[in-house]
Design a protein around this nucleic acid. Sequence first.
DNA 1: CTGTTAGCGCCTTCAC
DNA 2: GTGAAGGCGCTAACAG
Lengths: 344, 344
Amino acid sequence: MSKRTTIKDIAQVLNISTSTVSRALTDRWDVNPDTRRAVLEVAAQLNYSPNPISLSLRKQQSFTIGVVLPEFVNSFFSEVIIGIQNVLSAKGYNILVAQSNESFTIEKKNIELFENNRVDGLMISVAKDSDDISVYESLIEKEIPLVFFNRVPENVAVSKVIVDDRKWAFKATEHLIKQGCRRIAHLAGRDNLSVSRNRKQGYIDALKAYDMPVDESLIIETGVQMETGVVGAMNLLKMPLLPDGLFVVTDPVAIGAIKTLKKSGVRIPQDIAVVGFSESPAATIIEPNLTSVQQPTFEIGTAAAKLLLAQMSDIKPALQTVILDAVLNVRESSMCEEFRKKRG
Amino acid sequence: MSKRTTIKDIAQVLNISTSTVSRALTDRWDVNPDTRRAVLEVAAQLNYSPNPISLSLRKQQSFTIGVVLPEFVNSFFSEVIIGIQNVLSAKGYNILVAQSNESFTIEKKNIELFENNRVDGLMISVAKDSDDISVYESLIEKEIPLVFFNRVPENVAVSKVIVDDRKWAFKATEHLIKQGCRRIAHLAGRDNLSVSRNRKQGYIDALKAYDMPVDESLIIETGVQMETGVVGAMNLLKMPLLPDGLFVVTDPVAIGAIKTLKKSGVRIPQDIAVVGFSESPAATIIEPNLTSVQQPTFEIGTAAAKLLLAQMSDIKPALQTVILDAVLNVRESSMCEEFRKKRG
DNA sequence: CTGTTAGCGCCTTCAC
DNA sequence: GTGAAGGCGCTAACAG
């Protein structure tokens, strides 16, 4: 950092005190218009820009917020980050992002790191194996502004932004039912992830709503990543009778499953219709294009950021849960016409 | 930020001066072992962690570095970021990331923002329409440690990390030639992006090396994103004679092209073999799987970060250009056997 | 309207 | 070995 101009420099040039310079610069009322003009002019000339570090020290705020999420290689969380940045950058905040790689241990470490860095607030999407809520409770105790998004812990009183997974899993499954599927299987994520649990529940809700039997043997636990979909599909293939519909917890898992099914000569959607969840970019690349529930990633980010801003303001608002809506993008993997025809 | 313990608190408890506490904490030699032990104990008890903001002010370093890149929704740059974080986090640096959305104007704004935030160093991958190198030169003048990666400006004396695009475009094209392709087209990015220029040059090099004519009409300018591949493919389809090979500047563009070609009944690789560049995750999802040049994303990040660390150290090293190697992942879109057979 | 003083948390001379 | 003093850049309370 080569020497930068400070208010002291400006004061020296004009032979006035630093406080006056400060006042002029921060646009306060009680300063002579002429003085202000002079200060502004010199400031511009010397290319002055206030040192945010000293401001932070003074104001006891870092103007930095920390975002902890499972990963950001898949576009889902990247898009959420963009939403977050959009809101928070406009308010002068810097955003630090850390990946937990789906590990609760790393998640804890990241949270601690951010605390030590004196972030003004924290936005968290929990790792898939997060179970100990005491970490979050301790943050609340310390009154660190906190918002969860997308993947939220249960039984913790916090503000959060979520998509109604249960509802949209219901819709996805309902869609399969309306396409004529009668034996619908589910590739489910692990139960400790609330998102997985809710999607499974929505699947069950739908079956019940349409008076269809809930067959536990048709629910196969996978994970949320592609490779687990391969294993899940192999389990499907082992069944004496292949299901005619498949609702999958996540697009990557669905894609892994589709690849495997196709390799075994299973036709999609003719033999089995498939619906995914979370709208990955690959949905429109794989063949057949994958029907998927699209979540409003950008809005998740902006909503969460706004919640955080509210929490960081002087008047602390009540806890809030924002529930965003999604969209079911119907594509070939579950397309009705050919499907019904070919099925006869 | 609820009240945190400071060295003052520790000093008070032990009835010693803050300077002694500071010395004990920073592990200096000239402090009584007993005192140190006591300080450390109290510090642990009070859950002390040094305030990085005051440290920054004192040391005149922010321990923050800024990364400016075109976008991070596609996995390519995300992976680079992970590499960067891996090196820099270990050294206690925070990483701020900003997207330029391929706009030079935003890129400039981001750079300026980071400067004003007093980042200790800058890592840049330029937007596709960046042309005015004066911005970078001014950074150099201000002696701000600076490293470019992947997309680098030409005619600027800086340290950088790149993959030898020209060489690997050569290899990709050579691969097509060895597969028996005789009329190889190229979907090229815009010329102002060095990456695009170099890949085109590599393509031309290969043709020449194998005594094949360079036919300008077979070089179609697209962009680096998927949609432009659609347009590019439509131009190919308009040709009186469809080329039998296609080297594409980028995987997304290749995927856009493949989709379009397939829709028109063109068979890949039988009618036209396709090779992409940059190994997107979609390469193994699209059918046929796409042959692509895989760049070592993580290593690009780590190498660039290490270069930056070197520049930020006291002994400024000479400018360096690190050239990393890549790999050609051969897949169905250019697979030889069936290809040759079917072609007869 | 403007200058003086003090302090945010920490480190580093300079004394003793 | 330890304490006192000063300062990083800036602002806010208090005088004038």
